[in-house]
Design a protein around this nucleic acid. Sequence first.
RNA 1: GCCGACCUGGCGCAAUUGGUAGCGCACCACUCUUGUAAAGUGGGGGUUACGGGUUCGAGUCCCGUGGUCGGCUCCA
Length: 661
Amino acid sequence: MNILLSGSSQEIAEGATGFDLFKDRSIVAMLVNDKPRDLANVIQPDDSVVGISLESAAGLEILRHSTAHVMAQAVQELFPESKLGIGPYITDGFYFDFDVAEPFVPEDIRRIEKRMKELVGKSQRFRRVEVSEAEAIELMKNEPYKLELIGLKSEDVAEGSIEVSPDGLSVYENINPDGTVAWMDLCRGPHLPNTRQVGKNFALLRSAAAYWRGNENNKQLQRIYGTAWDTKEALDSYTEKLEQAARRDHRKLGTELDLFSFPDEIGSGLAVFHPKGGIIRRVMEDYSRKRHEEAGYEFVYSPHITKSNLFEQSGHLGWYSEGMFPPMKLDSELDEHGAIKKQGADYFLKPMNCPFHILIFKSRSRSYRELPLRMFEFGSVYRYEKSGVLHGLTRVRGMTQDDAHLFVTPDQLQEELTKVLQFVLELLRDFGLNDFYLELSTKEDGNPKFVGSDEIWKSATDTLEAVAMASGLELVPDPGGAAFYGPKISVQARDAIGRTWQMSTIQLDFNLPERFDLEFVGSDGDKHQPIMIHRALFGSIERFFGVLTEHYAGHFPPWLAPLQVVGIPVADEFGDYLEEFCRGLKSEGVRVTVDHSDSRMQKKIRDHTLDRVPFLILAGARDQEAKTLSFRYRDGRQINDVGLQQAKAIILDSINAKVQV
RNA sequence: GCCGACCUGGCGCAAUUGGUAGCGCACCACUCUUGUAAAGUGGGGGUUACGGGUUCGAGUCCCGUGGUCGGCUCCA
């Protein structure tokens, strides 16, 4: 019979399987008519077949999923009472959920890993068995979670579910060499031909609880995460990547470099910035202010607390009260006759700045000539984030947003959004981030929670999309991801080690202008409602600070570095020579010091390198003689015999140009 | 919020079966006066997160509170 093998026509025997087609052992599965299948599948006439090699993305997914099966088998052997949840592959690895009486402890994880290695050595075949629903129920009768999945199969099976497919049910059995069934699981496959091919390049990483089917009202199962690779080198490089990420963790660097801390006495999620962190933060803020001023923003200020009415009118108390700190209650005072002498009130810490800016807009009547009106504030807000979600500076309870609200007429919208997006990207680039993509969050059709007419959503979404497209950046749709009050664009930035962070957001709002009856007088003399744009570039200064710390691994570029230059005399007597040079830098605003301590020069180089100072300048007799000095950089580079004028220029130029050194 | 683990000088870590807190770095002093990642000697510093309990005796065991970490859920 005839088939299409890797695109070319080929004659094969009736009943041939993938094993007959692919003799190359690195082919572990195949695409049959674009669907992933086991090699054991019998090829049908006119099928289009392409091999999946182990090292391909699809191959690694299969490897990881098969590794998850081996893990589940090991767990059920070691913990016979355990029940299976789901066990998919994920980026770089896999996990499997188990219902067990006692959560796993690290010793359990080691035992499981050891048992997995033994199972790999046993060389069990993965065998697919297609079953009817009744058969599946019988086979899985001791697996309550699997039974639940079987019941779901036809209706709301999650897209990409690894257990069941809309096409029908199947189980995968692990077959011992003697033909006995060692283990089985409900699974859509495909799998590697044999556990031996799982190899040794896997590791179990951690265990943690996870809600069954991701719903917090469901029971928590115990999830074990693992990683698996095709080669030892790939596993090692992945492990190295994790270690590298751990080394640049901003929480660790924050302590090491004395940038910020979270004193227990203050409370969870509330940071203090130390002097060195304070310099970085102030430089960030100063630069942001300068750019905002140039871009036509007006600076406003608002208090940290407000009476409840403001957030009642904005609606936040209705839908967001859980995210707010509870009120400070001022009781009303009564006189001796029981009449109210002083009205009581509830004061709230503000979780957002927009209502304040709106009140400024509303403080008098506005003309179309004033629009677009752009109000900017470094606004400190407080949100009662759940304790379990707090994370260093990136998820806190008190933060300062570089927040702006733009009030525009509908026909200004496109131009203003274009400007804002450009502005955002330029500023992010100045901070050394330059690998972006955009995400466009849009309305979910038919969901009544979204306010505003379909027409306005359509036109606003189209506008946002046009603006995003015009930026030339990759645009990823996020359907249904919009807030109920309007669509948004968010800028996602990739950092130095390829992780993505949501940075800036540009959010349209159809809700608040309505709730607050915002209006301006148009050229026609009539009143019109402005459109409101919320936007933050840093998101919050704290979070941006954390992201930058990780992006640079603490090696801030000179313009941001708390200490920019340290002078290191080769011996004490050259201290004055360096001191004089550094005075010149200081008068230019450079953050510089000369280390006169009685440590050895080598020790000073070590200390200030570990402290991530961008410019170490050294001078000894030779330099004093020749009116030169030598540069030593954080990566070990050195440039010797640099003339003093040139040295000054090198330092000032790299600070002013905001470049990394 | 949920599940689990953890909390010892500023930081990183030790402390047999419960027996009365040590080390390195940092800090301070002195000696050494130095050419590209750690000189030497000496010294100070901890009611072991907090509050209870068990015990002759608790860093160690038990209970509670707070905090941190890893996930899950959440991020309007």
